[in-house]
């Protein structure tokens, strides 16, 4: 494996009153370059927290997140694109305006922001919706806006948090195709708790439960190791449950 662009080293994170709820303790992980990674885990496994830490949104209580070997939040912001679970429509803004505004706030000049927004909107296939207000878009279209916002800074790594949650099957298929087409040199990480999502489209599967990695390998390896062998499981869902359940009990 070549040098990772994004890595978590000895990460610790807790939240809540007096930070009593511990999510990660000495967590180490690397995002492989040029790979699309599926981050699987049950609700509350820490997937979204991990993505927020990797994107620099949250500060770890210990350890560090490095991008290109440098532990800098400014660098994280510059080089890591992040799409959260819920994408909010801007105040009366059109698709083009919202994406351009996010680029401008991020530090690009007005002209650069406009160009980058146009390019990002094209990449997510929303050209025909440029002039539509974002509060009038469907859920799937709004997620595409979120993806455009994540792409607009042309980062090296792309983190997508539950990108298909709440989408209907047709929208999910469309989104899968879109993600397949997006190439980031530093890699793409997609978190989900739905085992059937995207598993065929990715290079790597990571299963996270209780803040620890339960499985890290290729989809084929996952199928081979757990569907046919582990605990008599015969489906992906049963294998996933066996891994996660085994980790819990």
């Amino acid at each position: 494996m070549s040098e990772p662009v994004l890595e978590a080293a000895g990460l610790r994170f807790s939240y809540g009153r007096l930070r009593r709820t511990r999510v990660f303790d000495d967590f180490t992980w690397q995002v492989a370059p040029h790979e699309t990674t599926l981050l699987l885990g049950p609700n509350g496994a820490g997937k979204s927290t991990l993505l927020r830490l990797l994107s620099g949104f949250d500060r770890p209580t210990g350890g560090e997140v490095r991008v290109g070997g440098v532990a800098s939040r400014r660098e994280l912001f510059r080089r890591v694109g992040w799409m959260p679970q819920d994408v909010q429509p801007g105040r009366g803004m059109t698709v083009a305006e919202q994406v351009e505004y996010v680029a401008w706030v991020g530090g690009l000049s007005r002209r650069q922001a406009r160009d980058a927004a146009g390019e990002a909107i094209s990449r997510v296939d929303l050209d025909d919706k440029r002039a539509v207000r974002t509060d009038r878009l469907s859920g799937g279209q709004l997620r595409r806006v979120g993806l455009a916002q994540a792409l607009v800074r042309r980062g090296d790594v792309l983190l997508l948090d539950e990108p298909t949650a709440g989408l209907d099957p047709a929208q999910t298929l469309g989104f899968r195709a879109l993600v397949k087409d997006i190439a980031c040199p530093g890699g793409v990480v997609i978190s989900t708790h739905q085992i059937s999502d995207l598993v065929d489209d990715v290079d790597r599967v990571v299963i996270l439960a209780d803040g620890r990695i339960r499985f890290d390998g290729t989809p084929a390896g996952f199928v081979q190791q757990h569907v046919s062998a582990a605990g008599g499981a015969t489906t992906l869902a049963e294998a996933f449950s066996a891994i996660v359940g085994g980790g819990r009990h």
């Binding site: 994107s55 620099g56 949104f57 939040r73 400014r74 912001f77 992040w82 959260p84 909010q88 429509p89 801007g90 105040r91 803004m93 919202q98 505004y101 996010v102 706030v105 991020g106 530090g107 916002q149």
Partner: peptide, 14 residues
């Protein structure tokens, strides 16, 4: 801190 500005606002901590 909400909506579209949340992530960009991180820079504001700098």
């Amino acid at each position: 801190g909400l909506g579209t500005e949340a992530r960009p606002a991180l820079l504001a901590r700098l």
